[in-house]
């Protein structure tokens, strides 16, 4: 039989369509009904990673002007694929270290605040979010579900950690004599304040 003839092609297409629509073995198995609170599907976590990982790399590399754009995009794409396809804490830690290396670049001058660049706060926040999302993506499969309440279980700890980091950053900035933009100072104080409230209300 010559499969290139139009009649054969139409027959082949018809059989393929029949296989896709009528073949019971091709249909997915039924799902077990589990009654829970509001949930998020696992693929939404991967989607968030798909957005956050390039954002981390581009944010970190944006302060180093001599970097090749091709290298940055290649690294961002590589780690995005890695973390989306196989999210592991080790990969997330590697991405964080690499983002810090990209951020390293030339030392900021006295006009930029001495040895402390406030831009690192954004890199820190994105790096922490990537690490947390990676943990969740590693524990919730694509078709799995996670309760939104479970995703928000550790919000107090996250606030405390970020608040503590903001306090440390403010201290480092003061020591290095950097000029602090008002918005950054307000944001850092706000996070630190919320973290203090969280600590005071519940451990």
């Amino acid at each position: 039989m010559n499969p290139t003839r139009p009649a054969d092609w139409s027959h082949l297409l018809q059989r393929t369509r029949q296989r896709l629509t009528n073949d019971p073995t091709a249909r997915p198995l039924p799902e077990i009904t589990v009654e829970t609170g509001p949930t998020l599907r696992g693929w939404t976590l991967r989607l968030a990673l798909l957005l956050l990982v390039p954002a981390l790399f581009l944010t970190a590399a944006s302060r180093t002007p001599d970097l090749s754009t091709g290298i940055v995009w290649t690294l961002a794409a590589l780690f995005t694929i890695l973390l989306t396809a196989r999210p592991t804490p080790a990969t997330a830690a590697g991405a964080l270290v690499l983002a810090a290396v990209l951020f390293w670049g030339p030392s900021p001058g006295p006009d930029d605040g001495g040895a402390f660049d406030p831009w690192s706060l954004l890199v820190t926040l994105l790096g922490y979010l990537v690490a947390r999302l990676t943990w969740w993506a590693a524990h919730v499969p694509l078709r799995g579900r996670a309760e939104i309440a479970a995703l928000l279980t550790d919000w107090r700890r996250d606030l405390v950690v970020l608040g503590g980091t903001a306090v440390l950053a403010a201290f480092a900035m003061l020591v290095s004599g950097a000029t602090l933009p008002g918005a950054v100072l307000l944001a850092a104080l706000g996070v630190a304040g919320i973290a203090f409230v969280a600590l005071a209300t519940h451990r």
Binding site: A115, A131, A169
Partner: peptide, 17 residues
């Protein structure tokens, strides 16, 4: 090594957590 506090700051949240 780099004398940069901002670099060290990136790893602080993970250590605190």
């Amino acid at each position: 090594l780099a004398g940069r506090a901002d670099l060290a700051l990136i790893g602080v949240p993970g250590l605190l957590a």
